[in-house]
Design a protein around this nucleic acid. Structure first.
Lengths: 144, 144
DNA sequence: CATAAAGAGGACAATTTTATCCGAATTAAA
DNA sequence: TTTAATTCGGATAAAATTGTCCTCTTTATG
């Protein structure tokens, strides 16, 4: 459903949120280990999240990634997905037809619309905090 | 949402169904032209559909691809997707976690479940005939 | 039977996505 | 001010997906 990059991005964000709630910064090494993802690739994804203001980075010694505690409940999964994959997930025709739209719908248009709306709603109404609160620090959950 | 291969596969199947309803066999050249897809790649995809009994092929002179008229209404989009992409579309954890399941759900498990169920239902309840009947032969619909 | 028109399938090429590496810039702390 | 710990970003590599080409087999028809 999502690209690998996006999966890693969501998992990483949840882990960072979890740590930020405890006032801990985390680096790519720790993140990758905890969410079981390739380190360098994860670092690239984190850069994208930083550029798109999803997570905050602090450079230099004792640096790392964090999320402002007050922002954790307003960052939606949709923001993460958009930062990494753009809005291709629930955009465009399911059959890849460029000119399919409301005025000139392809045969599957209405059917896809429902599913996409459901996905969009889910991503836009799920915030990082509600996900993080399902876990507690030390859980191996994001790993397996 | 789907791979290119899958998009071409669905479009090709609709076009073949449309023609089979009129007792015409079609070849990869005509199919590719009509659904605006790369010919050789489309031919590969058609092979997969044949192997998985979604469409029928007739070799030799005057051969081509067709679908038994009586099967058109029982072939579901889910069958096409499964033949090409396997059942990865609505299988597996949305976050890519291998051990996420009903017993040990990841934080997004319940949320994804809804969307996936919707997608699954849509694909499993949409048959080729209902799609083909939305179109008529000669429509440029599958092209754009 | 010979021939031409098809699909089947293997080998290969291009592109995109995933993943790695390394040097440069930044910063806290000795 | 030097050093070590970091993120940033560009170059590159590996793997997967997408796309092409060519030969083999099958089959209708003359």
């Amino acid at each position: 459903m999502f690209s690998k990059a996006c999966e890693y991005g969501i998992r990483a964000s949840i882990f960072i949120a979890l740590n930020s709630l405890e006032h801990r910064r985390v680096g790519p090494k720790e993140i990758a280990k905890e969410i079981n993802s390739p380190e360098a690739f994860t670092a690239k994804i984190l850069q994208a999240l930083v550029r798109n203001n999803v997570v905050n980075s602090v450079k230099g010694a004792h640096g790392g990634f964090e999320i402002d505690k007050k922002d954790i409940k307003t960052i939606m999964i949709a923001d993460i997905v958009k930062a990494i994959d753009g809005d291709n997930v629930y955009k465009g025709c399911g059959l890849g037809l460029h000119e399919c739209n409301e005025n000139k719908p392809c045969p599957m248009h209405e059917k896809f619309k429902l599913v996409r709306a459901e996905l969009k709603y889910m991503l836009e109404s799920t915030d990082l905090e509600s996900l993080a609160l399902d876990l507690k620090l030390g859980d191996t959950f994001l790993k397996v």
